[in-house]
């Protein structure tokens, strides 16, 4: 195992780097579809720097995590255990999930929140090969006119948005690029 990748990587200055990374996560979620560039960090393949940054920023021992088969390697597990301590769980128990779109599977399998607590739903970190060129037009809160993004399956996001205020929320990651799609965003295929 690439021991160095597991132990050495992470935020060099944890408090300040996490603050900077969170600002990107916040901007991404507040402005759906906009692309944010994270600072490069070493993470074990196939985990992208952007996905690793989201996990370092938000996951810890209190946030059960589902790893899709695409990313379920000993190196990724060891890195997550060392840097976040997040317990690994099945889809339904997950606060966060990471993997390719195919490996994460239908989003209905994840927690959708409840009518009284719609926040109790999973945030999916979907690893992508690229976030462009766009195939979907996004409108809704956070978007002045319209944003565009490359989505794996626009119809799935329409179904998710129809569940509002329930539903899951998404980060899309590719290399050092990051974008988000909350349940409020209306998606039209381009």
């Amino acid at each position: 195992m690439a021991h160095d990748t597991v132990l050495a990587a992470g935020f060099a200055d944890p408090a300040r780097d996490a603050a900077r990374a969170f600002r990107l996560c916040l901007n991404a979620m507040a402005r759906p579809g906009t692309l944010q560039d994270v600072a490069p960090i070493a993470a074990p393949a196939p985990l992208s720097a952007a996905a690793a940054t989201v996990l370092l920023t938000l996951a810890d021992s209190t946030t059960p995590l589902f790893i899709g088969t695409s990313h379920d390697t000993p190196e990724v597990r060891a890195w997550i255990a060392f840097h976040t301590g997040a317990p690994l769980v099945d889809r339904a128990q997950a606060v966060f999930a990471v993997g390719s779109w195919a490996a994460l599977g239908p989003t209905e399998a994840f927690a959708q929140g409840t009518a009284e607590y719609p926040d109790r739903s999973t945030t999916l970190i979907v690893e992508r090969s690229a976030l462009t060129p766009a195939n979907a037009r996004l409108t809704g809160p956070g978007i002045q006119h319209a944003h565009e993004l490359r989505l794996p399956d626009p119809a799935a996001f329409q179904a998710n948005a129809a569940l509002f205020p329930l539903g899951v929320d998404f980060y899309f990651t590719a290399g050092t690029q990051l974008a988000a799609l909350p349940r409020t965003t209306k998606v039209e295929a381009l």
Binding site: P14, A15, A18, C25, L26, D119, P141, F164, T184
Partner: peptide, 30 residues
């Protein structure tokens, strides 16, 4: 004290709440 006073675990907890707040505008996240 840590940067911006709060410990990192506390900040993560607040950050997660903020993101859910943005995802469900106007809903009060505990």
């Amino acid at each position: 004290y840590n940067f911006a006073y709060l410990d990192e675990a506390t900040k993560r907890m607040i950050r997660r709440a903020l993101l859910k707040g943005l995802a469900i505008p106007g809903y009060q996240v505990p």
